[in-house]
């Protein structure tokens, strides 16, 4: 019985239904939040503001998609925010040393993957707790970023390097179609490639996957490397956005990403969730943050609201499911 679920570990129908329901809840909340903020502030709907909003959450989109893969395997990655700073540092140093944007890109992504590989080996091969390992690399990567930058920022003027994060076509930032492309690519990887099935299998039941020869330990390594690569991409976008490399960039990004992924309905215990949910989660989160900024809300009140919304969405979801089950 367990064998058959693991052999075809594609999302069982019931889970799909509850996920679809969650997405409807999210879409509803996004509409309510937009209308509410739109009434409170006429600027909310301006094209410029929408561009700002999307650009400001571009990095969160990428990092959260990586986090979704990890959480599908039942893991967690606390190191992504620090990794964005570290990968950016390596990229910027490579750029200034060689004056080649291409080498800078490659260096940033490789650096991100390197931290991801450390996570992956410790978690996948040594079977250590993801929480603990990434907590260690959270400190390690931030520390390395500080060392690389010598705790100072480095200005970047190379137009090619800045293009992705800084350029806009009118009100549309270049980075938005780029994020959409990444989303499509990752969707293919998750839903159409064998790797995606391995991810769901590793999250549903590691031991069964192991017995079935799906090599979940290898899958885990690659999932963390993927998250690292996305952190590297995010680093490039961040550098472009602020036209400089910053050692403190990405601070607490992991908390935002985890919150967004949870909002998007992905289970913490692995095996259940979709990328679309994460996209909706990031959108809802971004709209709320943007709206709170527009209305000049007290930062402490913002924290409280953030907490209540997170709890409220999950609670709503649970209650709806319970009623349905009855």
């Amino acid at each position: 019985m367990t064998m058959s679920t693991a052999a075809a570990p594609a999302r069982p129908r019931r889970a799909m239904d509850s996920l679809t329901q969650r997405y409807l809840v999210l879409v509803g909340l996004i509409v309510i939040a937009s209308v509410g903020f739109g009434i409170a502030n006429e600027n909310f709907y301006s094209l410029a503001n929408i561009g700002i909003l999307l650009r400001s959450i571009a990095v969160l989109f990428l990092v959260s998609m990586g986090m979704t893969f990890i959480m599908l395997t039942g893991g967690i990655d606390l190191s992504v925010g620090s990794n964005v700073a570290f990968a950016g540092g390596v990229g910027v140093i490579a750029l200034t040393a060689t004056d080649s944007a291409a080498l800078g890109f490659v260096a940033a992504i490789l650096a991100g993957m390197a931290i991801g590989a450390i996570n992956g080996v410790f978690i996948g091969r040594l079977r250590l707790s993801a929480f603990m390992v990434t907590l260690a690399t959270f400190a390690l990567a931030r520390g390395l970023a500080l060392v690389i930058y010598d705790a100072d920022s480095i200005n970047v003027s190379n137009a090619a390097f800045l293009w992705l994060g800084g350029q806009s076509w009118g009100s549309l930032p270049v980075v938005i179609p780029f994020v959409a492309l990444v989303f499509v690519a990752l969707s293919v990887l998750l839903y159409r490639a064998p790797f995606g099935r391995d991810v769901y299998a590793a999250g549903s039941n590691f031991n069964t996957a192991f017995v079935l020869g799906r090599m979940p330990q290898r899958t885990l390594v690659w999932v963390y490397v993927l998250s690292g690569a996305l952190a590297g991409l995010s680093a490039i976008i961040t550098v472009g956005r602020v036209s400089s490399g910053q050692p403190w960039t990405g601070l607490y990004l992991e908390f935002d990403a985890i919150t967004a992924v949870i909002l998007g309905g992905t289970s913490l215990f692995g095996g259940r969730g979709r990328l679309l949910g994460t996209i909706l989660g990031v959108l809802l989160y971004g709209i709320i943050i943007n709206g709170l900024v527009l209305t000049g809300t007290n930062p402490y009140l913002q924290s409280l609201i953030k907490g209540l919304i997170l709890l409220g969405v999950v609670l709503l979801d649970t209650l709806v499911q319970r009623r349905k089950a009855q």
Partner: peptide
């Protein structure tokens, strides 16, 4: 996690 955010907010309020 949501209590973390809420406690942070309440501590300032």
């Amino acid at each position: 996690l949501s209590m973390l955010f809420s406690a942070q907010g309440l501590s300032g309020l």
